[in-house]
């Protein structure tokens, strides 16, 4: 019934205007829930990008005690280089460590001034071929006798190792919480939007009950009677989804550059492809909510 598309759209828009307070309520709740979905998706995306970049930088630092025998250190270095997990080993002397520290702390000279002697240990920086093998490599190092001999804290060798696993774990825990909270909120808001759409469509059915009665009387097919109401629900949620997408784009344009400024060492950026994917998800979710909400209303209130 291609000729009737115009009729359906006209009917839906008329009904939307006749009932604009409820319709607006439905649009706003859908907008809010989809906005939250979108924001938690963006956050998740950013965090996983950060995790990736941190993983790239993951290395294991082995702190050496002052006055460790050069032969032992070189032997440990040689042993590390022979390991197939290791990409490179870099020796950092006490002086180099202090230089680095001074560079990093250039903003607060009082700390540097307060240091009377060099408290920093020398270290071996181990870069790995694959960041996911950090934990495995740490275990191997701990089992190595040479390491215990030269390490900074022979009483507790664990303390002489510093590696990114903790950071990565913490980031993942954070993402998990963000996701969980997001899912709970989104589920709540989605049910509210469903109820709202359900109600608007119920009112729309009520407002048009005479016409519906006559349509049934003269033999309009069930799908013909239902289509305008389904379309109305979908229009409402598409409107909500559209505004949500625009808001997220605006937020991205306004907030991300400042975030990037504040965190120059992290890659804070959302690619166009990711944005397109996000928009598609939001539109899809909107259509789904609209269809479900008006579908429920039709099943309950429209007997054909």
């Amino acid at each position: 019934m291609a000729i009737n598309v115009g009729y359906f759209i006209k009917e839906s828009v008329t009904s939307f205007r006749r009932n604009w307070v409820m319709s607006l309520g439905a649009v706003i709740t859908i907008y809010l829930s989809l906005l939250l979905v979108g924001l938690s998706m963006v956050t998740g995306y950013l965090v996983s990008e950060v995790v990736k970049s941190v993983e790239d930088k993951v290395s294991i630092q082995i702190f050496l005690k002052d006055g460790a025998a050069t032969a032992d250190v070189e032997a440990l270095q040689g042993w590390l280089l022979r390991d197939e997990l290791v990409e490179a080993v870099n020796y950092v002397s006490k002086e180099q460590a202090l230089e680095r520290f001074k560079e990093e702390m250039a903003g607060s000279p009082e700390i540097i001034d307060s240091m009377r002697e060099n408290p920093l240990p020398a270290s071996l920086d181990v870069t790995l071929n694959d960041p996911r093998t950090v934990q495995e490599m740490v275990e191997r190092i701990k089992a190595q006798e040479l390491f215990v001999q030269v390490c900074d804290r022979p009483d507790d060798p664990e303390q002489s190792l510093k590696y990114g696993q903790q950071i990565v774990d913490r980031l993942f825990a954070f993402t998990r919480i963000v996701r969980l909270v997001g899912v709970v909120f989104v589920a709540m808001l989605a049910s509210v939007s469903l109820i709202f759409i359900n109600n608007t469509i119920r009112l729309a059915i009520y407002a048009r009950r005479k016409e519906i009665g006559i349509m049934r009387l003269v033999g309009a097919s069930n799908s013909f009677i239902r289509a305008p109401f389904l379309l109305e629900g979908v229009l409402q949620s598409l409107l909500g989804a559209g505004i949500a997408i625009l808001t997220i784009v605006a937020i991205q344009a306004a907030v991300l550059p400042r975030l990037q400024e504040a965190l120059p060492f992290l890659p804070v950026d959302v690619s166009t492809a990711a944005m397109l994917q996000l928009s598609a998800v939001l539109l899809g979710a909107g259509i789904l909510i609209g269809l479900l909400g008006s579908g429920f209303a039709l099943r309950r209130y429209l007997k054909v």
């Binding site: 005479k210 016409e211 009665g213 006559i214 049934r216 009387l217 003269v218 033999g219 309009a220 097919s221 069930n222």
Partner: peptide, 17 residues
């Protein structure tokens, strides 16, 4: 609905829009 297209109906209260 297709059955009803074969049956015209008239009521006491006209049922006009």
């Amino acid at each position: 609905p297709y059955l009803r297209r074969n049956i015209g109906c008239v009521f006491q209260d006209f049922k006009l829009l």
